[in-house]
Nucleic acid binder design. Structure first.
Lengths: 214, 214
DNA sequence: GTCTATAGCTGGATAGAC
DNA sequence: GTCTATCCAGCTATAGAC
């Protein structure tokens, strides 16, 4: 039950520890700090095991990303069941932990084709799901002139990304007003109460909590 | 007149070549590829000269950033004189070359305090200037309910950043609609004609053309 | 200002024992 | 599955000749 179904493609405890270690390193020191030696040290494992499980460092990056991406897609699915889906969606997009890893992967994607392909696929799926949720939530309730779900998705993605990236740099000018504007929009559509903490989040949590991506 | 006023802090041709090389490397291969050897090779210079001029690789990063940042602030200043300042501001923010370098520096900033400080200072100045231009352009002409210049600045920054970052990943869903929405806003305030190519850009161009930052 | 040389370290990757 | 040992490449930074 613990380290079952092993093998290079499997889900052994060691493999998971290596993934956790790599994600942590990316967050704390940046993708350039993800070396076989450092990852192994942090996972209390032997450096050679990185090659055993992943073959190359590039594949390690992809595995880290995929794990987080899948967790995030599940969480977005769960948003449908939240008391206030739109607000839950906004909160999911605005998680700072989330966006810190994303910045690292986007920087990586600019220079590693395999990573770029993976990110492109992930974002396409994530945005489509967002559009879907928006379409359902806004059906017959949006005033004339409301942009399409696709455009609203860009708006939400852009605003959550700039706010979280600004936060990382300590920039806050205008943030409060923007957050209030967004809050007003959400309230207009879904009523006043924010989701209680955890309502928007995943029953999927647990291990996946350590390296969300998106 | 050519390599005049030399010295480690000066502006010799070699120093400039090293800065150009570092900026190119960041764009093409990412910040992790900025090593003394590679930078020197690309600049046809000796690796030891990096230390002569900059002391450390960190200082080289800062010098690259500052050069681009100053060029960008000058260009934003020039926007005031454009036929359509708001449109010129939007076009400046939307330059892809611009944002590619910015992503690298933001990733760097997450892990190097000196870089974070520098970016924080730059963005603060850039946004303040944007707010100023917005305030001037919108004075007495904005309908009730229009967000403040500070909030509009976040909106502009967020939209231009998400669009350019999406472009780098090949994501385009909803982009056309968003661009049209923005275009309509600009037209409503400034009339229909886009700035002729170059109108929004810098008389400051030339060498600075190679590594804008922002 | 520019160069060579070099110390000392860290890295990716593999072979092969257990 | 996990480990040791190892090859070779690349890196930062400095000392010192020219």
């Amino acid at each position: 039950m613990s380290g079952a179904r092993s093998g290079p493609g499997g889900d052994s405890a060691t493999r998971a520890a290596l993934l956790d270690a790599a994600a942590q390193l990316m967050l704390e020191e940046g993708y350039a700090a993800v070396t076989t030696r450092k990852v192994a040290a942090r996972a209390n494992a032997n450096p050679a095991l990185v090659y055993y499980y992943f073959g190359t460092v590039d594949e390690l990056f992809l595995a880290v990303f995929r794990r987080g991406a899948e967790a995030n897609l599940r969480r977005l699915q769960d948003v449908r069941q939240a008391a206030h889906p739109l607000r839950a969606m906004w909160e999911l997009s605005s998680e700072p932990h989330n966006s810190a890893l994303t910045v690292e992967f986007i920087a990586l994607a600019n220079h590693r084709p395999a990573v770029r392909t993976e990110l492109s696929l992930y974002f396409t799926r994530f945005r489509r799901l967002q559009e879907d949720i928006l379409a359902t939530a806004l059906a017959d309730r949006s005033p004339v002139g409301t942009p399409s779900p696709a455009a609203l998705t860009i708006l939400i993605s852009g605003m959550s990304r700039i706010l979280t990236m600004d936060d990382a740099l300590g920039l806050a000018d205008g943030h409060q007003e923007v957050r209030e504007l967004i809050d007003n929009c959400l309230t207009r559509f879904e009523g006043t109460a924010p989701n209680s903490p955890g309502t928007s989040a995943s029953p999927t949590s647990g291990k996946a909590d350590q390296d969300r991506t998106g």
